[in-house]
Amino acid sequence: MQSGFVMLAMSLLVFLGVYAVGDPVEILISPDADQFERERAVRALGLDLPLWQQYLVFLGRALQGDLGRSFVFNEPAIQIILQRMPATLELAFGSMFLSILIGLPLGLYAGLKPDSPVSKGIMATSILGFSLPTFWVGLMLIMVFAVQLGWLPSTGRGDTAEILGTRWSFLTWDGLRHILLPAINLSLFKISLVIRLTRAGVRETMLMDYVKFARAKGLSPNRVTFVHVFKNILIPVVTVVGLELGGTIAFSVVTESVFAWPGMGKLIIDSINVLDRPVIVAYLLMIVLMFIVINLVVDIVYTMLDPRVRLEAKA
């Protein structure tokens, strides 16, 4: 109920905001077009109606899943976005996978041996991961691995293979080579996050009675680490990484622009630059919807994981 209200408020805000940006007629119609042609175009795009009427028309269609046609591509806006979505999702999930693959072992090491110089190095590097601007790191990755060393391609998605009607890069060798740099770039922040969370979790768990007890029983250090400690830190880490999905998709705007990755993020930047209103509105509404869904799912998952939340609700 509340989500629906937020959605409605956002749709009005987004619609009015986008309306204030500028007149798309100026950009779309060539300056040589005469008065008659202009008027015809304005009417065809529905821009001659009063503002509130445009909003109602928009809202009515939006409820039917129609968010208008792109001025540039002359295709339904939602369809254009959905076409680009697999590329973005692929990148986001790839980077989340990398962040766990790299972050967990490093965080585990830093947590088990907090005083070793290697751990201190890991922690210092993780501060860099938080503070470096993503786009600059992306440029440096291109410079080193694509330009200087020539190991990996710098832009695009490469060859794709088709499953269930959508095209994916990670299924082909060439596509994998293309996705590696952008995925690393997008995962840097999350790698740092996972390292810190894992380290804090390990240090906390190592002091717990059940770990002491497991040690006292004479279990091997490896068994204590990987069965008793690891299992318990995994839940919060995975939860936080899941929570970051929305942020990852949002931040892919930057990474996609750097690596010319043809996803939703690049689409929105291009659309803003040419004032393609329906696409901007549709993109923003979809992102808002996505965030509402993610927050809802997280709330539900928390209730399932943490019995205390349920008890409070009953009392």
Binding site: L128, S131, L132, P133, W136, L139, M140, I142, M143, A146, V147, Q148, S154, V258
Partner: peptide, 25 residues
């Protein structure tokens, strides 16, 4: 400097980035 980087002219992007990095850190 982005468009020149692919042709190996790294300094147009590289040094402003270093300045940005030092400031932030």
């Amino acid at each position: 400097g982005y468009e020149y980087m692919l042709s190996g002219k790294y300094w147009i992007s590289f040094y402003p980035g270093i300045a940005l990095l030092i400031t932030i850190v």
